[in-house]
């Protein structure tokens, strides 16, 4: 009798209301933002590779910085862009920024302007924002022949041929490093088109989902290092000793992951109990779990 009751109680574990899950998710993600939780961040080899390439740059080197993402993944990728831009300007590296996403222009401008203000950089001399070009594959290839022909005017309509920053920089052969901060597959295409055809050295920052696809390119040396998700941003901030939003976000991310795992365990306990009781349990990949 007692065993039966226990079985029923455990079986109920498979029927937690989704609103309870939503509420708990809100709480565990929000709480570390208000009460700062600091966790030690170890630097992975991929991030160390990224950092090594940035540190190898010297003052006056040119870098192409591709803001290939839109506001949907800003929370994950903006901390990377800010940390990397900050470090590039700190090292007096000249930045040629562009985007292959129409929504990327609104993201690139504030990041560039805030870093430029902090480091007293002059537009057109120390950095330039070329803006959005619609044909991503054509742009990647054309930049290998001529930056100024690909972008005759910058984001604000100014003539790129008269800009001091581009006076001695007109193709990949004048660019020391290409940084692709990307929320899609474009990093892979940078590796194939700019890296494969023109031998451009590339590092990238990608969303955690996309980072999984970067490993083959990293292992083959086509991408020299990459930052994967918010954790990658946190690792890079740690590497350059400037903890910012990436490091701060680790508390929320950890709690979110732990909550998901907790619910997976709860769901499985309930499922096993229901199976033992002979009711089969609800949900499951093959069982149909109702609404998400």
């Amino acid at each position: 009798m007692a065993g039966e009751k226990q079985g029923t109680l455990l079986s109920r574990l498979t029927t937690v209301d989704r609103r309870v899950i939503y509420l708990l998710m809100t709480l565990v993600v929000a709480w570390p933002m208000f009460k700062l939780v600091t966790l030690p961040v170890l630097i992975s080899k991929e991030v160390a590779g990224f950092d090594r390439e940035i540190e190898a740059l010297t003052a006056g080197d040119h870098v192409i910085f591709a803001f290939d993402y839109e506001p949907d993944v800003m929370a994950e990728l903006d901390p990377m862009s800010r940390a990397v831009m900050d470090r590039l300007f700190e090292k007096d590296v000249e930045v040629v920024a562009l985007t292959l996403y129409p929504g990327g222009a609104g993201i690139a401008q504030p990041v560039l302007e805030s870093a430029a203000r902090e480091h007293n950089k002059v537009y057109g001399e120390d950095y330039v924002f070329l803006g959005y070009n619609p044909d991503w594959s054509g742009t990647m290839l054309r930049l290998g022949e001529s930056i100024k022909a690909t972008y005759p005017a910058d984001q604000f309509g100014r003539d790129t041929r008269t800009m001091p920053i581009l006076a001695d920089c007109d193709s990949y052969k004048d660019v020391k490093l290409l940084v692709s901060i990307c929320g899609s597959q474009l990093t892979e295409y940078w590796a194939a088109l700019a890296g494969g055809r023109y031998g451009q050295k590339i590092v990238s920052g990608n969303t955690a989902v996309q980072a999984v696809f970067i490993y083959p390119f990293y292992q083959s040396g086509q991408i020299k290092g990459f930052l994967g998700g918010l954790k990658g941003a946190a690792e890079y901030e740690t590497a350059i000793e400037r903890p910012a939003f990436g490091v701060r976000g680790m508390g929320s991310q950890t709690m979110g992951h732990l909550l998901i795992l907790l619910f997976v365990v709860i769901g499985n306990l309930g499922y096993l109990a229901a199976r033992r009781a002979g009711t089969g349990g609800s949900g499951g990949v093959t069982g149909g779990g109702g609404r998400a």
Partner: peptide
């Protein structure tokens, strides 16, 4: 855009709870 993407956290949590079974 950011809100729509952030909703994924809720759907992933709920879907993982319902779908991930050691069958």
């Amino acid at each position: 855009q950011a809100t729509l993407f952030a909703l994924l956290a809720y759907f992933v949590a709920s879907a993982s709870y319902r779908a991930f079974r050691a069958r």
